[in-house]
């Protein structure tokens, strides 16, 4: 096994990204789609922090990761509110069956 370098972290992040995208595409429950979005955001964060470590741009990458975490928190709160409204309106949260804008 080779010594752990930048590439290893990037490959882990690529796997997380692929799994997140898979969840977004195939899952029908809206909350599982949200989990996929969180995985994708985590993959982006790993890239930010890894490049921050292995290049000479200082701590800017880590700061971007912090901003992404804040945005993820806001996104999760809004998305959960929307999902609750969908559940109140339709009685389920299957994203493939929700095709009406009005009740």
């Amino acid at each position: 096994m080779v010594e752990v370098g930048l590439t290893h972290f990037l490959v882990v992040s690529a796997f997380l990204f692929a799994f997140g995208l898979y969840a977004i595409i195939t899952r029908k429950n809206a909350i599982l789609v949200l989990m996929g979005v969180e995985l994708v955001l985590n993959a982006a964060n790993i890239n930010f922090v890894a490049f921050s470590r292995y290049s000479n741009y200082g701590l800017n990458g880590q700061l971007m990761a912090l901003f992404v975490i804040v945005l993820a928190a806001a996104e999760a709160a809004i998305a959960l509110a929307i999902v609750l409204n969908i559940y109140k309106t339709f009685g389920h949260v299957n994203v493939d069956e929700i095709d009406n804008l009005k009740e």
Partner: peptide, 10 residues
């Protein structure tokens, strides 16, 4: 993984 990259606060 963040800890391994030296990003303790993150």
């Amino acid at each position: 993984i963040y800890v391994l990259l030296g990003a303790d606060f993150v």
